[in-house]
Nucleic acid binder design. Structure first.
Lengths: 204, 204
DNA sequence: TTCTGTTTTAAACAATGTTTTAAACAATGT
DNA sequence: ACATTGTTTAAAACATTGTTTAAAACAGAA
């Protein structure tokens, strides 16, 4: 069963772990081969190059992890419900994959120009439907006049950034891994409250 | 005058630019030498190694850019004033040095273990005085009971994260460099309002 | 000038990273 | 059994990296 895992998969998994942990640039193909327990040349046999392997992994990671998030944004919930669900779902996803934020941001900084690769980022942002919903509610006067871009950037910042500075937080607040996870979980309630507060206050 | 800039400085400046732009790992010592228009060996003559050059640059960058911020946090202003000033000052600083966020975060992800180097990060976080002020005002009942860590993380997230995803924002919101800067400037008022709102609401 | 220490250069070095080649192997269908 | 397929191995070729060396050019002081 799991004894004889297909080599392609072994490479894929080993590379994913290493890329997330050490970053793409600090991971060598020899590292990957060693971790996957395969011959170096197999990497080129299955994936043409390190770069190509990385592209495959990146696309997969983005798609897998953002599926639920997109669904929420495109669902028929109310604005309030959407925000609450989105925050919780996003945080849960990152709690399972805490290195994702640093990884994505390093890629973002690294290779924006390469357009094809960047499709993966689509998953990370708002959807048309959600943006429209924001504008609509705003126009109807249910909530204060709001700039959807600002709002979504706020939300994204509050959710994801703490993962990027995890080590800094742990160091300064003098908390350990377990306490950090608690700290993050507290944000599931905090962030929606903050955001919805901002929406409620009419007039500017 | 500026014609014959000392080589040490030329190396320093070229390296700083490249490190910020391409990241430390993707910058080779030969790149630096080329950009600085100096011979390769001079790099090792003046700075002992690439690693050492990087440490020097990192320390300098942190110190320079966080001076004003620390001063604000440690001043005698009211909480509200501090928040307003801090946000504006931080954003102005990052507008002048937009690559700093990605840079710092990559370092944070890259080499946390190396304690000595990490002193630079002290500048990036809250100070004791500010944290105490938050707790005090909170205890006096002037503001709602607040968790200083959450509050500071919120503030940091809202200020800095947009710079890290600048390219994503520009792409999705279909704005150019100039409009991005405007977008960021709008946040100078938005972020303090959001934060102070959160403080005002008594009870939990 | 000659001497001294500093600055600059070009080349070499060692280590590591990536890709390619060609041969060995295993499983399968004919 | 043979030939064909896809897979794996070992070795080497190739490229790039950070670092070091050895010697020349230079500047200022004696």
């Amino acid at each position: 069963m799991s004894e004889r895992k297909k080599t392609e998969q072994k490479i894929f998994e080993a590379a994913t772990e290493l890329f997330l942990e050490k970053g793409v640039d600090r991971t060598s193909v020899r590292d990957i081969a060693a971790k996957a327990n395969i011959n170096l040349a197999l990497l080129n046999y299955y994936f043409r190059s390190k770069e190509n392997l990385f592209n495959t992994i990146f696309a997969k990671l983005m798609q897998e992890n953002s599926k639920k998030l997109i669904e929420i944004l495109d669902s028929d919930m109310s604005l309030k419900e959407k925000i609450e669900n989105y925050v919780v779902e996003y945080i849960d996803m990152l709690l399972e994959n805490p290195l994702l934020v640093s990884f994505v941001m390093s890629i973002l900084h690294r290779s924006w120009d390469e357009k094809p690769k960047m499709d993966g980022f689509n998953y990370l942002y708002s959807t048309e439907k959600f943006t429209k919903q924001l504008s609509d509610e705003s126009r109807k006067g249910n909530i204060k006049k709001i700039n959807p871009t600002h709002f979504f950037v706020d939300m994204l910042s509050l959710i994801t950034f703490p993962f990027a500075i995890k080590l800094l937080i742990m160091d300064k607040a003098e908390i350990n891994e377990r306490e950090f996870r608690t700290f993050i979980r507290e944000r599931k309630k905090r962030i929606p409250r903050l955001l919805i507060n901002e929406l409620k206050i009419k007039s500017d």
